[in-house]
Write a protein that binds this DNA or RNA. Sequence first.
DNA 1: GTCTATACCCAGATAGAC
DNA 2: GTCTATCTGGGTATAGAC
Lengths: 202, 202
Amino acid sequence: MNTREKIFNVSVDLFSRYGYDRVSIRQIAKEVGIKESSIYNHFKSKELIMDSILDYYITKMLSEDIPLMQASFNLDIGFDYFYEMGLNAFASQLKDKRMSKITRIILIESYHNEKMKVFLRERILNDAINGWIDLFNLMKSKKLILEDCNSRQLAESFYKYGLFLLYEHYIINYPEDDKKFVEELRVKSKNHIRLIYNSVKI
Amino acid sequence: MNTREKIFNVSVDLFSRYGYDRVSIRQIAKEVGIKESSIYNHFKSKELIMDSILDYYITKMLSEDIPLMQASFNLDIGFDYFYEMGLNAFASQLKDKRMSKITRIILIESYHNEKMKVFLRERILNDAINGWIDLFNLMKSKKLILEDCNSRQLAESFYKYGLFLLYEHYIINYPEDDKKFVEELRVKSKNHIRLIYNSVKI
DNA sequence: GTCTATACCCAGATAGAC
DNA sequence: GTCTATCTGGGTATAGAC
């Protein structure tokens, strides 16, 4: 592992523990085992370390994320199975310790980091919600759910519960065993979704 | 308004905008119109300003919050009405600008502020969830909802959606009009709850 | 690429005159 | 209670030798 990677990993670790503002370049350098000034041979500034962390996360997330609509054409094989695929795609990312740590960083820093806020709002929130809306419209056309329910409300009710579980884990209960959380996320989301699905299915 | 109150209000405002770590005593003093050293005649440290902000919030919240079980004995007058009472209690607090700002502070700082984390976990999350669980058990005994559904899952599915709306507003969409948000919270929560209630009511 | 040395700035906090 | 002055420490970042 080269020095740049070491700096990257140590930064991810420290930022996720203490938050960006409470970690200094000195502290990162010490943990890596080099002097502060050497950091600047690899990253021009502290902020650019943060930027590269987000870039890494976005690239990895988008590359392995299974687009919602892609799967939705296989709806015939069952709603449960379809839902599980989407959840697995996300959950498998969280099992990676580094991705899990960055998830916490994003949740912590989004309130003042514009890039993270945009990513959270556009990719994690809006894209997913829109995917669910499309799916529910498809289900309406296939007479799987009631015609007169609001697709957007349905999508939000489905999805935002799971997002709160994420916030709860990373902010309120952190640090806890990630694997235990991913299992809980799976079970609770499934129960939640069944509850709602029950009230609109035909 | 005395100096101590001015310091308090300016701190609430600045902390809610930029976060605790990005606001300095100097900045607070400048905004108040006094010198840094004068701050220390009113608060022994920066951290104690933060503590007093949380204390204020807790006192105000708990004093006006309508305990969930208190209302639940009037269940006969209708589930919708009961739910609305609880939401109103919380929403009316958020219409107070100062309380709204402190809500954002708590959501921002909980990841590293132990007292805020405990308040969020115990009062905002667990107490409410337990209240809902009691309510659903009561509804089961009155044959209003199905006996074989899981009260805890039901409580979490109900409540955590609303909590995400809170996070979404204060972290992802902030600053936006608070009144608009409170109205949205009202409508969306109600729709959400009807969706779930539909699938378990008798 | 890593080091030593240092520039420069701003943080939280205190002492003591008025 | 407010001020001026100051302490002490730590922050990000750069210059230039090796």
